[in-house]
Structure formats: structure tokens, C-alpha cells
Write a protein that binds this DNA or RNA. Structure first.
Lengths: 219, 219
DNA sequence: AATATAATTTAGGGTTGTCTAAAAATATGG
DNA sequence: CCATATTTTTAGACAACCCTAAATTATATT
């Protein structure tokens, strides 16, 4: 398992969670920043190793083995993110790229001890769940996107998409993070932008930003 | 700077400190576990990059640039060792190989914050000095090897060689670590082995083991 | 100093993971 | 439903880093 295969498995996992369980060559090429032909090569290799099942021209999906490997990488990534945020005080938009490097160290003992040192956290700084050593995710409350909320109601932030560092910096500025309560003051139907109240301050967010914030109703 | 070049620079640094300032191809080959021909290839590359000065058939030495790079790697390695030992509770014979992986992450910010989190340690768990961000080593007391000590005297352990994990496990068993006081009870001249007292317990150590323990006179 | 031995380098290859360009398969839209 | 556009794969190449085998240079012995 090289760093490269780690990245492929992790990305296939993320994309198949987001979509319909299988992932296209082009989608991987886009996310990984490598050419489609390189993706094909790697998929052949991962297929031979039994981590993915790949039928020519019809996308890939993770096998049970591959999913186990991917979840383990996600686990390492999220535990390191908690360390970087809680112990070293990195802003949450900074932790991702460092965790990308730390996640490749595969020592089981290291992660077990780090997890204990951090007090067995269940969620990373973005609110994403941390799988346990068997791969099981903590029980999740059902969430929806802030962009799907309606005017006047209060919502609690559960997690935010961690794909873009610019987005995270923007959310940080607005003090939007897991646990915070957001009130939807107004919904502008012409462009789906929202006027919201976060800890007493009024802000306007675009539909794109609102769609990256996962919330629950705050009763 | 790849992991491979990191390892070459670090090893050249360590060997030139131990010897006469330059390092032979074979010595590197031995330490790194690669063939001499591979070492030659890499030395050519590092020479072209300006990190070492390499004259055919006459060994290498680090340039100012290369030494700076090497010290930075040593710094990262030793800071991670402190983290693994102090915070995660790894035994000191376990920290080395994990630190070997962590040291390749080159974020300056990460190391700065980690160092502060650890309270700006000056020495790693083996007693080796940690260079500061400018590359300066903390002031060192002069030490000699326990094998050079004489009968009856007390010595304080300053550091131990961290090259072999078996050696470190052995020292751990005998409770020999930096700070501990050792009394030389007897010196067997036929094989240079020593009978020593460590925290009230009597042990016998070979000349090899004694040569890996760096001490000062304990007045 | 000549020769034997040891150390080092060169020559030629292999693997991994990437690339470009071209070919093949699939999807789409009149 | 067929021609065109898009997606994916194949073919061939390259850089990094390693290898073995052979050649070259340095060192040691007598």
C-alpha cells in the first residue's frame, strides 16, 4: 500500500459515498489531479490486488477489502485532524492538508495510542464521524443541508464539507462550525441565497455555501 | 526533497559527525541498506543539487546547504520522538522507527507548533540534542563512553546510541536511560566487560553495550 | 613498484506511477 | 438508429530510485 494507492482508495470511497456506489474514471481523474489514463492504470492494479472491482468502461466500486482499507485511511486522517486542531491549535481549514500527509503512516499502535491520547473523539473538527478500529462509524443523527431549511427556523450545525480550504476559511470567518446554531432570517428565492444569524451577527451566504453546511433542526 | 534524499542527507550527516567529516560510498550503502551503485547514483544527484560535494572515488561531505537540510531533518525526527515518548507513552526503543516516518513531513508550522506543545524540549528520549529552528544545537556537556570509565566511580548517563532497537530494549531492561547514575563495580580486562550498579541492581554489560552509553562523571 | 584485493563507478535493466497521443468503446441527439 | 461527441483504455515514454554485472580506480602486500 503506497501513498498513491491510499489516495485512490480514499477518493473512490468518498466519491462512492457521495454518489451511487460506483465511480467513473473521469471523476477520479478530476479529484486526484491525474490523467484519466493514469487512473485506468491504477484501477487495473487495484483490481488485481482485490481492493476494487473494475469492469472496463463501467467504473469502479470498492470491494469489502478495499472499503476496509479506505475506512482505515479515513480513520487515520480524522484522528490526526483532531490532534492538529485540539492539541496544536491549527485552524480547521489548515488541518486537512497536514492530515493528508500524516494519514499515510500505517502503524496501528500509533493510531490506537493517539486516539486514546485525544480522549477517543467521535468526530473530527469538521463534524465528520471517526470510524473505530473495526471500521464502524459512530451512530449518526440524520442531517440535511442548510440550503434545504426554511425561513425563520433555528438549525444546529452538525458538519461542513471539508473539500475546499477557501470554503472552510470563509465559514471560519462567519464563525460557522459544528455545534453552532444558525437562524435563517430570510431566503431569497431568486438565487437561493440566505440571510442568516450566527451568534448574534447577521450574514448573507450563497446557495453554494449553504449547501456545504449540514444541519439538524434545533428544538 | 524526497524521502529518499532525506534519508541520504540524514545518514551522511550522522556518519560524518561520527567520523572525520567525509563519508564513503560503502559506509552509506551499509547504513542505508542499498547497493553501493545506487549510492553513487544518488550522490551524483545530491551533488548536482548542491547538497553534498562528491569527488569520484573520494567520498562525500555535506555542503553548508546540505548540512542545513540534514539538521532540519534531525530536528523533526527528535521532536517527534519526544512526542511519541512523552505524550503517547511509547518505549524509547519503539519511537525511532515511527519518527523515521514522521520526520519526512516538512511543514515548518507543524514542527514549530509541536515543539511548543511539548514545551520546547532540548533533548530527545535518548538524550540527543534537538537543534532549534535556526539549526543551533543546545549547549552540550562533554561526555565519554562508559567503556572508558574506571572502576569504582559514579557516572551519569547523558545519552545512548539509538542505532539499534535491540540495544535499546536491552538498556530499557537494565533501566539505563538519560539521567540515571551508574557505578562501575568491576572492570574485567580480559574482555572489557563491566559489572555495574544501576538503581541498586547489579548487572554485567559487554564492552559493546558499554561503548553505546555516553556518560559524565557524577560529582 | 607490481600485483592482488577492495572500493567505487558505469552500463544496462526493472518497477512504480505518471504523462501524451491515438485507438476503442460508450453515450447522445437529431 | 446512425453519426458525432465523450469517455475510457491502450501504446509508448519518462523520471525517480533501485538492482546486477562488469569495468575502473584506489589501496595494500610483498
Amino acid at each position: 500500500m503506497s501513498e498513491s494507492t491510499d489516495n485512490y482508495l480514499k477518493t473512490i470511497y468518498a466519491l462512492s459515498k457521495a454518489g451511487e456506489g460506483f465511480v467513473t474514471t473521469n471523476a477520479l481523474s478530476e479529484k486526484l489531479g491525474t490523467r484519466a489514463s493514469s487512473v485506468t492504470d491504477m484501477l487495473k492494479k487495484l483490481n488485481k490486488q482485490g481492493s476494487v472491482s473494475h469492469e472496463k468502461y463501467h467504473g469502479v466500486s470498492l470491494t469489502t477489502k478495499g472499503e476496509k482499507q479506505a475506512v482505515e485511511i479515513v480513520r487515520r486522517h480524522r484522528i490526526w485532524e483532531v490532534f492538529l486542531s485540539d492539541k496544536l491549535g491549527f485552524r480547521w481549514d489548515e488541518v486537512h492538508e497536514l492530515a493528508e500527509q500524516l494519514e499515510h503512516i500505517s502503524s496501528h499502535e500509533l493510531i490506537t495510542r493517539l486516539e486514546a491520547f485525544l480522549g477517543h473523539p467521535k468526530f473530527d473538527p469538521h463534524g465528520d464521524p471517526i470510524p473505530d478500529k473495526t471500521g464502524k462509524m459512530p451512530r449518526l443523527a440524520k442531517t440535511f443541508k442548510l440550503s434545504e431549511g426554511s425561513e425563520g427556523e433555528d438549525f444546529k450545525v452538525i458538519s461542513v464539507d471539508d473539500s475546499s480550504s477557501e470554503l472552510l476559511q470563509h465559514l471560519d470567518l462567519l464563525k460557522i462550525r459544528p455545534g453552532v446554531v444558525i437562524n435563517i432570517r430570510k431566503l431569497y428565492s431568486f438565487d437561493q441565497s440566505l440571510e442568516i444569524i450566527v451568534s448574534g451577527k447577521k450574514h448573507t451566504v450563497s446557495a453554494t455555501v449553504a449547501a456545504s453546511i449540514h444541519v439538524q433542526k434545533n428544538n
